[in-house]
Design a binder for these strands. Structure first.
Lengths: 221, 221
DNA sequence: CGGGAACCGGATGCATACAAGATGCATCGA
DNA sequence: TCGATGCATCTTGTATGCATCCGGTTCCCG
């Protein structure tokens, strides 16, 4: 999609960023006019951005009423995590049985990401750590070379971001745990060990589930 | 999404239908103005419909140029079938290990669908057969109760429709084959037989792959 | 004091107007 | 003859205007 600097894209990126970083909390009601005024453009491009955000599940449009920033619900958390397990699990399984050359190429890429992530942890560089985390999972899904799955996964990652916002994902030992689980996943990347790789993925996602569980704000109805 | 009779929805449904039934073949270049005139509305709602269709992978928008009806490529066929296998396979596996009551409820629903599909075959009622086919697969995916996976699957089914258009999916024995494969899938729905159910699904999708293979028109570049 | 209808403000849905980018062709020059 | 340039035309991108619809409030009447 045009990442050019069209008004539509600005509206899309700005609003999405505000939703993902929490400055537009779930339950908030926003209007096309507000965003249009804030970005000094007309309602038309904002409208298109809203439609796209609704398709991504971040907004819910109410006819003649406004746009509701959807609150993260436990059901959504579960749906996102299940979908992630399905997509990433498939990618891991496929990768285990892929030709050696390809599997090792991806494994090398993953090791590189882990190296960066370890360094970020050592430097206490949270953004770099998060970015490496993102690269790790995306690299796995990219290995399927399936644009449909990849696009779905991109949307899942966005939702995950928002989910993590309200969670205690920042426990002191959590980064180490994440890193260890990533390493366990990569270590299981070998022919015949697909089930194990998927099990390690499940461990990883379960940890996210735990980190997120019970930390939701009641979400303005 | 509002299935009300708004202009936007009419533009969306009409254009989508025309793409899916082949009256707008892949490679065709259409414009907002054409559709707007044809439906006696302004460009605004058409534009929104186009954006949505692009998100679904049916159109590709070229800035200031027009909208290209994307031609089905072998790569897309493969991507759709792989994604279907991932989603439906997950649903089947989950269903096999689900509580007995739930599994049997879904199995009953599937048997009902198969009954309808058999009747449609006997009556030589192609639309009814296709609709039953659709219900069969959707019922499986619905059993996950995961709206994300369900929505993805809906989009996959649409793409599959278009893929089937240019295929020899109408071989004389093909309906019997489909029905038999559906039955094999349902028969494998039992605890501990998840792998078998997935294998039967793979058989089914492989048959589609074969039916579609080598029947593509060269697709205007 | 309570209930219902009219009213008002605000937001969207769509139509229309205008500006700007892109393409293809005709034209012009070497 | 061939290539570059400018133009005509088509299409999108964005702005703006207006009608409609919704919800909350007010006002009137019983």
């Amino acid at each position: 999609m045009g990442n050019g600097t069209s008004a539509k894209d600005r509206a899309y990126r700005d609003t999405k960023a505000r939703i993902l970083d929490g400055s537009l909390p779930g339950g908030e009601l926003i209007t096309e006019g507000q965003v249009a005024d804030a970005l000094a453009m007309s309602r038309t491009p904002v409208r298109e951005a809203f439609l796209r955000l609704e398709a991504e599940g971040l907004l819910r449009l109410f006819p003649k009423r406004g746009a509701l920033v959807v609150a993260v619900s436990p059901a959504e958390v579960e749906a996102v995590l299940e979908a992630r397990e399905v997509v990433e699990g498939h990618a891991l399984g496929k990768l285990c049985e892929a030709p050696t050359a390809e599997r090792e190429a991806v494994a090398r890429a993953l090791h590189e990401v882990l190296y960066v992530q370890r360094a970020a942890l050592a430097d206490d560089d949270e953004p770099a750590f998060a970015e490496a985390d993102r690269r790790f999972h995306i690299t796995i899904v990219e290995s399927t070379r399936n644009p449909i799955l990849l696009e779905l996964y991109a949307s899942l990652r966005d939702r995950q971001l928002r989910i993590n916002l309200g969670s205690l994902d920042r426990g002191p030992r959590r980064p180490q745990e994440i890193l260890a689980q990533h390493e366990a996943i990569v270590d299981a990347l070998a022919p015949g060990r697909a089930d194990e790789a998927r099990a390690r993925l499940r461990d990883h996602l379960d940890a996210t589930r735990v980190a997120v569980a019970g930390t939701r704000s009641p979400a303005a109805s």
